Amino acid sequence: MNVNARTVRWLLTSWAASWFAAMAWHGGMSWHFFVQGAQALADADDPAGGLHLYAVAPVLQIGPVAFLVTEALRVFGGRPDLLAAQLLGTAGGAYVLWQAGRLGRRLSPWPVLFFVPVWMYLAVASTHLDDVLALVGGVAALAAARAGRPILAGLLLGLAADAKPWALGFAALLLLLPGWRAMLRASASTAAVIALGWLPFFLADPRTSRALHFTIANTPLSALRALGFTDPRTPPWDRPVQALLGIALGIIAVRRGRWPAVLLLAVAARIALDPGTNRYYAAGAVVGALVWDLAGSRLRFPWWTAAAALSLFASRSIPLPAAIHGWITLTYCLATVFLLVPRQPTDYGRTKPAGPGYRRMPVWPREYRPGCGQTQRP
């Protein structure tokens, strides 16, 4: 590594460390939910705990995997368990950066600059461990699918959904596996892991189904209101449509060779139709945008990552009318649909000469397309 590269690495590490320090001291805003839920889940003798947890407290829209990880971190006790969760979340962000670089071109400083503040808000300031695990699991599942490892891809996707149910919207990434048998094996693996995580609760207490119908306030800042849905709380159709729309968009993306957009499209479908407007939601869009910018975009500057960080995260610090924030969110989410537009017929190895800032996304000939038996780049 030359001096300049070493200096850049040091500056980026300092950038991340400064954000961690700034957010850690007064961070952990949501950590008490995880501690309370983990304690209740571990207390099998409590009629309000154990496998009755979701029946008694449907407000806990946190998956069992996140509670199990929390319980493991509680060994540190008190304030140290929060710090351990924050460090774990930070390590998850480092993994996402590393894996996104492996999926696409070599990681450059620009994506890191935009990614770090948003991720640190999720992992350190709010300490939403469930979303951290869901996003890390989604990126890992995508990498496993690209490597042609069906069981691992299905396992990781299932664990992501067991940490946060909305991660099921990433399911289209399984279409990247080579051949229908691999896809079926991965789907069976995902279904088995999800059943293992959630079915015991439904079998132990049928009232667990209440968690499926739990609603939250439809805030004035939501993109859902900008779309014209003014229900005071979550519409009954909302959650299923979020998942189905995310999966459908992901399927179209894979079929058109735009696989790096799968995560971003699933997150955009969720945010566009979600009545909640928690600031940490932006981390999902930034993760998806990062994968697209590094593995799918032709441009060197990470425009989608920058736009997600500025429009969905930084703009929330600007005192604008609530409806304006909703329209900003909706505009970004709708813009992601343009990632599905096919490129000009310059693919299959016959492209225009590359100019400054130009990077061709691989578009595979038939024998290299997902589902045709090949998993590596030609």
Rank of each mutant, 00 (worst) to 15 (best):
I247S: 14
N218P: 06
A140L: 09
R210Q: 11
Q242G: 14
D274Q: 05
A322F: 10
V241C: 07
L87W: 14
D45Q: 08
Y281H: 15
A172V: 08
I194E: 04
V193Q: 01
M23F: 14
L176S: 09
P260I: 03
L203D: 03
A125T: 13
A85H: 04
L73H: 10
A21N: 05
V124K: 07
G50Y: 03
G257P: 04
L339C: 06
T215G: 06
A42D: 05
A285V: 02
L159G: 11
G138W: 09
S18L: 15
P345D: 08
G154R: 02
Q61I: 03
P275T: 07
G154L: 06
P206A: 13
L155P: 01
G373Y: 14
A134N: 12
T331E: 07
A40R: 12
R359K: 01
Q36V: 08
R233E: 11
A147S: 12
V56W: 00
L249A: 10
A322N: 09
L265R: 11
R105F: 03
L244F: 02
P345M: 02
A186T: 12
L263K: 05
G179K: 05
R9T: 15
H213V: 04
P260K: 04
D347E: 11
A226E: 01
W364A: 15
W19P: 13
F76S: 09
G27W: 09
R366M: 11
M183C: 04
P80Y: 01
V116G: 13
A188F: 13
I318T: 06
A44T: 10
A57T: 03
G63T: 08
R369S: 10
G104A: 06
L97E: 13
L152D: 10
V262T: 10
V8K: 05
F34Y: 12
